[in-house]
């Protein structure tokens, strides 16, 4: 029988093979015994995802691969956090890039042109 660990944050039980809790995606930092908090999702070149975790105690950032039974809603929730609280008005995005001389448009005109 596989040994089970209990998540400190959400209390869910999971097997020892996991490096992070599949329910709330937080983990334990081995070096300082701090709690690893999921902060972002990294989309790699080959279209696989990694979760970026940050230690609450020492501030170190680590990445861990997304495993099969990770909660998909939780992953999407972490990925959508920056969009929910933007640092600038999204409506003015086009105007702002024009002012700065950037090559971006909201409808992706330049991307189509390059193709």
């Amino acid at each position: 029988m596989a040994e089970e660990l209990k998540c400190r944050i959400c209390g869910a039980n999971f097997s020892k093979e996991h490096t992070h809790c599949p329910n709330c995606l937080s983990g334990r930092h081995e070096e300082c015994d701090g709690t690893l908090e999921p902060i972002a999702v990294w989309v790699k070149q080959d279209d696989t995802w990694d979760i970026i975790l940050r230690c609450r105690l020492c501030g170190e950032i680590v990445t861990e691969a997304v495993c099969q039974d990770d909660n998909p809603i939780k992953i999407m929730s972490i990925a959508s956090k920056p969009i929910a609280s933007p640092p600038f008005p999204i409506e003015k995005l086009n105007e702002m890039t024009d002012l700065m001389g950037g090559n971006g448009t909201i409808d992706g005109y330049y991307y189509d042109k390059r193709k």
């Binding site: 995802w49 998909p72 999407m76 959508s80 995005l93 702002m96 890039t97 700065m100 971006g104």
Partner: peptide, 27 residues
């Protein structure tokens, strides 16, 4: 910082198909 580039990085997870849309739909 270029706001369009920042938004592009923030939107990256939504454009890739790593999480199956069908799976979320079923859930």
């Amino acid at each position: 910082d270029n706001p369009m580039k920042l938004m592009a990085i923030a939107m990256r997870p939504f454009t890739s198909g790593a999480i199956d849309k069908e799976r979320i739909k079923n859930m």
